[in-house]
Simulated scan of single mutants.
Amino acid sequence: MTDATEGECSMLDGLRDWTDATDPVWQWVVVMIAGAIPFVESYFAGPLGVLAGMLPALAIAAAIVGNIISMVLVVLLSGRVRSATGADERELSPRRERFKQRFDRWGVPGVSLLGQTLLPSQITSGLMVGFGASRRQVIIWQIVSIALWGIGFGLLAVGGVALLEMR
C-alpha cells in the first residue's frame, strides 16, 4: 500500500471506531446537523455517515431530515422578510439576474431539481421565495430534490464502501 492509501484507510478506520463507540442517537444527530449545513447538505452528509459505518438507510435519512429542516426554516424566513419589506422590484446583481432568468425558464421544479448542482438548497429556496414563488411549492419541490440527491449520493457511497472493502 502507498502512504496515501494507508492514510485513507487509517482515517476511515478512525471514523468507524468513533461510530462504533458512539450511541446511534448521537450518530443520527451529527449527520442531521451536517445535512443542515449549506454545501454539505444531504448529498455529502449521507455519504459521510455511510463512510463512518452507520447503517446506510439511517445515514441517508438523517442527512435528508437535517437538510429539509434548514431549507424549510430559510423558506419561512424568506417569506416573512419578503412580506415585511414588500420587496418585489429591486435592482438585481448580475448573478441574481442569471438565477432569475433560469427561475423564469424552469420554474420551481426545474430550479429545485437542478439547482443543487450550483447552489445549496437553502440559497435556491430563499431566492425562489424572494422572487415570489409559493412557499408551499418551493418546500414540496425542494423536499423531492433533497431526497433524490441524498438517496443518489448515499447509494454511490454504499457502492464506494463496498469497493473499498473488496480490496
Results as ranks from 00 to 15, higher is better:
44 F>W: 12
60 I>S: 00
107 G>T: 01
138 V>P: 00
110 G>R: 03
119 L>W: 09
3 D>I: 09
61 A>Q: 07
33 I>F: 14
122 Q>S: 10
93 S>P: 05
110 G>H: 03
51 L>R: 14
153 F>H: 08
136 R>H: 11
36 A>N: 11
154 G>S: 06
74 V>T: 09
122 Q>D: 11
69 I>V: 14
117 T>R: 14
161 V>F: 12
66 G>H: 07
98 R>D: 03
66 G>I: 05
39 F>C: 08
83 S>H: 10
116 Q>C: 08
64 I>H: 11
89 E>C: 00
9 C>H: 13
111 V>E: 00
96 R>P: 05
117 T>E: 06
32 M>N: 14
12 L>V: 11
60 I>E: 00
81 V>I: 12
99 F>C: 01
76 L>M: 10
64 I>K: 09
160 G>E: 11
26 W>I: 04
85 T>H: 01
147 A>P: 02
113 L>Y: 02
101 Q>M: 08
99 F>E: 00
103 F>D: 00
48 L>D: 14
39 F>D: 13
49 G>E: 02
77 L>D: 05
3 D>H: 15
119 L>S: 10
76 L>A: 08
80 R>M: 04
88 D>S: 12
150 G>W: 05
25 V>W: 15
90 R>A: 09
98 R>E: 03
133 A>C: 10
157 A>G: 13
159 G>Q: 12
111 V>M: 03
4 A>H: 08
158 V>Y: 03
78 S>N: 04
30 V>N: 01
111 V>Q: 01
165 E>A: 09
95 R>A: 15
34 A>N: 08
89 E>N: 02
155 L>G: 01
156 L>D: 07
121 S>Y: 06
67 N>G: 02
30 V>W: 01
61 A>Y: 06
139 I>Q: 07
2 T>K: 06
139 I>A: 09
7 G>N: 13
106 W>F: 01
81 V>P: 05
15 L>P: 06
40 V>G: 11
125 S>R: 06
165 E>C: 02
93 S>D: 07
91 E>T: 02
16 R>V: 02
157 A>W: 07
121 S>I: 01
11 M>Y: 15
75 V>L: 02
133 A>K: 07
99 F>S: 01
152 G>M: 13
121 S>H: 10
84 A>K: 12
46 G>Y: 08
64 I>F: 11
161 V>I: 14
152 G>N: 12
9 C>N: 11
94 P>L: 02
16 R>C: 05
71 M>K: 03
154 G>E: 04
134 S>G: 14
95 R>V: 11
25 V>P: 10
75 V>I: 03
46 G>L: 08
161 V>H: 10
109 P>T: 03
16 R>G: 06
138 V>T: 06
20 D>K: 14
140 I>K: 14
